[in-house]
Amino acid sequence: MNGFLKSYPHSLTTGGDPLIEKSNIGKEYPERTFEIEKCKIRELARAIGDKNKIFYDDDAAREDGFEGMAVPPTFFTLFAMAGGLEYVIKDLEINMAKLLHGGQEYEYFKPVKPGDVVKAKTIITDVIEKSGKAGTMDFVVMETTYINQNEEPVLRDKCTLVVRR
């Protein structure tokens, strides 16, 4: 993690925010609902520069065995902010200027397709304090599980936030 943190300017690190309490582990946030939308799939694929037709065209995706337009692996980042991150940032009173995205994991259980409606529930699974060359930081791990309209789990999102002091 050091290379990443070193590249962030020291000028952003001011003050001494209170520690993030371990007691936040296990905290659950309210459920939210999202729809998988075609325009957003195309928009994300285009921004990434991924020209694979299955992310733009239903027919191309069907020819490849999909039920509808395919969804890129990082698509669920669209729901990250409204899908839990916003709650966590407010609830833990995290200063955005000190917040870094340390790591991101996606585990895929079942494909989603346009028109699917997913429900998301976020839980804080870990809070760790780490000290290194770049100083002491709090690591907050949040996990969000997405369930489709048939109550089947489709994806687990594990996001590690790094909060500099």
Partner: peptide, 26 residues
Amino acid sequence: MGFAGQFMTNWVGVTAVKKLAVQFRA
């Protein structure tokens, strides 16, 4: 991470990818 996703789907396709995890370094 989107580039990493493209790297994997170009190779094995979309539905084959069961897990994708990254650490941001720089």
